[in-house]
Design a binder for these strands. Sequence first.
DNA 1: CGAGGCTATGGCACTGAGTACCCCATGTAA
DNA 2: TTACATGGGGTACTCAGTGCCATAGCCTCG
Lengths: 258, 258
Amino acid sequence: MTQPRRARKATPALPGDGTAAARAPMREALAEAAFQLFLEHGFERTTVDDIVARAGVGRRSFFRYFPSKEDAVFPDHESSLAEMTAFLEARPDGDPLDRVFDAARIVLRMYAANPEFSVQRYRLTREVPGLRTYELSVVRRYERTLAGYLRRRLGAAPDGSLRAEMIASAVVAAHNNGLRAWLRSGGSGDARLAVEHAFALVREVWAGRIDPLGPPPPPVVALPAAGGADGEVVVMVASRRTPLWRVVQELEAVLAEG
Amino acid sequence: MTQPRRARKATPALPGDGTAAARAPMREALAEAAFQLFLEHGFERTTVDDIVARAGVGRRSFFRYFPSKEDAVFPDHESSLAEMTAFLEARPDGDPLDRVFDAARIVLRMYAANPEFSVQRYRLTREVPGLRTYELSVVRRYERTLAGYLRRRLGAAPDGSLRAEMIASAVVAAHNNGLRAWLRSGGSGDARLAVEHAFALVREVWAGRIDPLGPPPPPVVALPAAGGADGEVVVMVASRRTPLWRVVQELEAVLAEG
DNA sequence: CGAGGCTATGGCACTGAGTACCCCATGTAA
DNA sequence: TTACATGGGGTACTCAGTGCCATAGCCTCG
């Protein structure tokens, strides 16, 4: 079986890059062919050769667009994750809880944009251990993104890192609880209702327990080198007049992500 | 690559079964050889052939004891998970929060029992995407176990399922936050301190938000057939004088686990 | 217009995990 | 002794994923 493999091998210039899915007919064709076959014959009994045969392309091309067979089932998460990251970077101010809710809504919208596909994929994922595991790792990346943002906002407060991770996990749990209820229902009804209800519980539990006024939006950007591991390098960019404590806080936040 | 593969193929009578690790010299030898090689040459550059060569056994035997290469890195989680499940089944009464904390402490004890091993494994896991993913799926199983227990205790309350999942995720997040801090420190200090501190935050956040007196310990046992999927069968055992609402609640709890 | 270069794709060939199937040794019961 | 169960070994196969190279289209610069 396979997984996110290398967490993301720095995305070596995907062919149809740019705005992700857009302008990538081959990628779409492959994902479509793969999903159809998975539905027809099951994930495990479908080989990559079957997929490329249906798509009418070379086997090697499949792995140019999808690092693993599992990736073809979740062709949209990568861009969704990028969107979430960009959103939190672009608008780090305001109530932290509101921000992470907004960020989570991005994911929900992605699911709601294609109800039938989402439901079918949900059923498929439920039955294939490999896909469940893959989805787990995707969800985890969302959670880490949220936690990273919250850590930056709460880093200075006592237990900032702990609180950040607990809130992120609560938001993810709430989101997934609502989402799964909708998916189980076959896509009938409004996915947002259940999720917003769940978010309300998160807010009820955590509101008031977060520094009423978090620190200002970070003027510091720390970029952990992709790949991580031992010889990792962190590049920080900060305005010269950034107070030292902010730099330290940011550094701690990045390092604590490990 | 590989993963938990088949989530657990019903554990078809492991050779050295019974009390798990105990009385399974071959399994131990394999895990030991594997771990040494992983540390020396890295996980991915070590093949199963290397492992069985060092252990002096046949290749086929490796897969009799470990469904995948990754499993050899976490030889103790299976029994830990079983212990947690047994604990929650044996003592379902009392404060639900206390119970899930106790359950989580089982896992912590397992880590703390072998500090050097745990720390080395932590470092190894950090660097190998496949192991990270594997660990994720293990953690998820713990979380589901806790959520399942909580769902049984809160199932009748409004939003019982949602609350159960949020609390379970909070406990896991707290546990992992403390555990990781300890692991990052190289195993110096007391792992329990950080974890107990984190648990205190969970209690602070959730105490009072749980039905002060949850329903009595469930006299109903529902066993979802291993394997799940479509033709799934649920076997329920209940005393004849169990009130109907309890049976329904239990059934809902099991079905909601999907 | 042609040479060089870049990009997208196809085509092997190879590694290595995981599995199916069958064999063998040993211990045990009849 | 035979009959059989159990734990382990061996072989051959499938298939995901990777490295390397070839080729076809396209663009640009001279």
